[in-house]
Structure formats: C-alpha cells, structure tokens
Design a protein around this nucleic acid. Sequence first.
DNA 1: TATGACATGTAACTAGTTACATGATTCA
DNA 2: TGAATCATGTAACTAGTTACATGTCATA
Lengths: 170, 170
Amino acid sequence: MSLRHAVLGMLADEPGSGYDLLKRFERAMGNVWSATQSQLYGELGKLETAGMIRVHAEGPRGRKEYEITDTGLEELRHWLLEVDPRSAPRSGSLLRVYFLGSVSPDQARGYLATMGEVAKEREKRLAEVESSVDWDESNESFYGRLVLEWGKRYSAMQRDWAEWAIDQIK
Amino acid sequence: MSLRHAVLGMLADEPGSGYDLLKRFERAMGNVWSATQSQLYGELGKLETAGMIRVHAEGPRGRKEYEITDTGLEELRHWLLEVDPRSAPRSGSLLRVYFLGSVSPDQARGYLATMGEVAKEREKRLAEVESSVDWDESNESFYGRLVLEWGKRYSAMQRDWAEWAIDQIK
DNA sequence: TATGACATGTAACTAGTTACATGATTCA
DNA sequence: TGAATCATGTAACTAGTTACATGTCATA
C-alpha cells in the first residue's frame, strides 16, 4: 500500500489539495509512482477517516487543502524506516524479452530497438525536468535530485543494454 | 494484464501444470514478474475458458498439464508486437527516497545503504542463477540470458547509485 | 459567452494478495 | 508412518483502472 505513503510524503513536504497532488504525480514523481485521479481522491478520504491527514483550508470550487497530522507523520516514518522496501518486481517490458523466441529475429530486434528508444525519450524528459525545476536548498529538492539521478542512470543503462542485446541476435 | 501473457509465453516454450509454472516464476522469471499460486490457477482457468490454452495431459494428484493453442499463440504475438510496452512506473524503494527529508540524515543514509545491500544480494543471486542454469541453444536460454544480463546491469547501477547517494548527504 | 483549467466525486471493473482448505504421492 | 513435496482450488480482501458525472472560476 504505497499510494497511501506517497500521499503522506507529499503532504509532509507541503499541504495541498487532491488536484495539487495529482499534478505533482504527473510532474516530479511520475518517474517512480503514478496514480489516477479516482484512486487519489479515494485515498484522501480514507486517510482523513484514519486521522492521518486533515483539511486545513477550503478554497473556491470546493477545493479542500489537506495537511498531514502527527499520526500521519508517524505512519510515514514507520513506513520509511521499518517496512521492508523489497517489492515484487514487475517489469512488463523485460517480461516480453523472455518470450521473444515466439517471434522472428527481426521482430525481436525491432522490439529491443523500441525499448532503446523509450529509454532515450526518458533521458530527454529527465534532462528537461532537470533544467526546468528550480532546485532550491530544501529537502524536497535535495532528495528529488537523488531520484532524478537514479532515473538518468537507469535510462542510460537501459539504452546501453538494448544496443548490446540487439547485437546479440545474429 | 501481463500475467496472462506471462503464462502464455511460458506455455509457448513448453507445456506444464500450474505447479510447474509457479516454480518457473520463482526460479528464472522471478526477477521481472511474479505471481501467487492463487492468481495463477485463476488465470489458467480463464485462459482455458477463452480457448487460449488446453489440457493436453493429466497426471497423478489431479495434475493438469496445459499447452498453448493457436488462439493463445496469436494473442501472445499480438501482445509482443502490437501492444505498447510502456507501463506505469512503480518503484516503492525509489518513492521512499523522495521522502527521506522526513527522517534524519543518518536514517536517510541507513536507508540508502540498505538499498545498496539489496542490490548486492541481487547481484549474488543472479550470479548463482547464471552458473547453475544449463544454458543450451534454445530460444528460451538465449532470451533468458539477455534478461539475466539486464538484471546484472540493473543491480550494478543501483549499487553504484546508492553509494554515490550516500556521499551526497553531508 | 465559451473555453480551458480547476476541482471533486462515484460506479463498475480488472489485477493482485492473503488466508484457508483439501488431498495424493514419494521416500526416508 | 510421518514429513516433504506435489497439486489444485476458493473466499475475502486490497490496489489500481476506466468511465461517467458534475460543477466552478478566470479570462479572452
């Protein structure tokens, strides 16, 4: 149950409405987690019921701005420090590679080439994020940069691997 | 819906029972996808109803050995070649990094160190798989090796990144 | 005044997890 | 004969997706 913790983490950085959080998912955090609008509003409701967040301001158009409570902060820290971070790996694109024996070598190379392209696009997008975000001295910026660097290394790895893999298919 | 395709892909390599497939998930494919026993048997039932697999032999203890049908092979190829492989990224361990500002620098370093350890364990496990599997000339072996190489590169990247990240925290 | 961004919610579905339940076969 | 492994299934739950539904506010 990580959406819950993503929401708590974002609200620990700064309060915001469901709409705000959705933007933040799309923008900075989209690389490592995503959520649909529907799921997000549902989770906000549950977190409020559980006393982990509370409405601290209301705005126009029914806007409800949430902030994290002490209970919520406690839950966030518990998750960060005491819950085993290992999770079931789930990579659809790598899963496909296993089964490329079911198509022709040319088609297999084509698939791997697409994987390489996707990695390149990702690198490009991350470079844009890097230059467009104004990195201040906040914790959010600091750890955000660590995650960004991870994304860059990951994309580069994937690109190199895809090129290598294409060469392996005679 | 990738479990369905994982099952089709495995049965395209060779027929097997639910129990067999479960072993294969744990063993070779665990790095990129996993499934619970419960989910697997459910999916086998649905695939049989859909005419994508069929029971081709029965054994002791109610064992049902499935094989893929032409309809199933068609579905597998469709998925491999025509379905956009991009999927929502979902990395719980990286998500946590975003929020390390909510704990002390020491605790943050501790978390990153754990990530590095996990990567090292993974490298070790993959090395064991590499030496224990008998890599023949089959397609399954060939593409399996590509995936294994990906895992090795991924783990090495993660380990290096974790070491770098720890150094960033003053 | 109409368009686009802001803003929230619900219903119905698919995917995945955890726990329970049962029984057969092998082999030490 | 007892333990490990083989083997399948169901029930109840949580997580995530897609589609629908509604309305407000700013501004061009």
